[in-house]
Amino acid sequence: MTPTPGSTTTRATDEPPPTAAPPEADSVSSEKFVTLTAHEMQVPISVLSWNMGRLNRVLGTVSERPDVRRILDRLLEANVRLTTLVEDLLNLAKLHEGAFRVYLRPIQLTEVARRCLKTLEREAERRGVVLTWSWDQAQIPLTRGDPNRLSEVITNLVSNGVKYTPRGGRVAISIRSSSELAPPTVPIPAGKTRTGKYLLVSVEDTGMGIPNDEQPKVFQQFFRGRKAFASAEGGTGLGLYLVRRMVEQHGGAVWFVSREGYGSTFFFTLPVAEPYPEGAEATKSA
């Protein structure tokens, strides 16, 4: 048995679509209950996070006490986790209904990224992981995207990087232009051309990496790696599955390279916005 040298590339689309078993009557109603409850939970969660953000700004500036800082950090972190869990649940419910939507319009991806990273920075710091980002604003064209969805994509990838990187490690995000949807090693859907104008986002970490035998599975629903599962890290294994669905709905691709013990880099691409909106889009421009 020879270990695979170096890193391997795995594409996001090589798994067959999940085949759902016909749901039984009470599994349908319990799914509905979960969806309804998750939906209702958005109100108290928003109240919590908006007020916690405010409290953080108020107390953070008046109190020098380290214990206050720690309490705030824990609250903020728990709230981010709670929010993510509920979002994942609702997104999953939407996917099951087949009603998952993205609203594409020209946006500045760097703005979305900046906002996500600002939120995640504190969490990284608390874990002793250095979070850095770099892009040349002048070189980044507008992309077609849904800022709400793309912020979920970025948050998922970066929080994985932070979660699966031990103290002392680094997570680096970059955004740049690219002339291909995905590199030649990554298969793309039939009928799609590989070349075009894209933005390429990469999230690179110096963390634990993904073992070769697990690499083909990470985009599957509910898949969690052995180490992730055994660790104290919470998670449902939905993050990357949703990332893939969202990126593909934007007309982009997602893939990664990883080497166990050394780290992982996740990539995704998004089509650059046409300079002149056509068709239905034109009606929206005043």
């Binding site: 939906h39 953000g53 405010r54 979002e87 939507r101 609203y103 709400n148 929206k284």
Partner: peptide
């Protein structure tokens, strides 16, 4: 909220300028 997809689509079609998912955006 997440799950309001249909209504959001309609609102954007009707000329709303932006939409914010409550749980995704900080007040700032």
């Amino acid at each position: 909220n997440i799950g309001d997809d249909e209504k959001v689509r309609e609102a954007l079609d009707q000329g709303a300028d932006a939409y914010f998912v409550k749980t995704r955006y900080s007040l700032e």
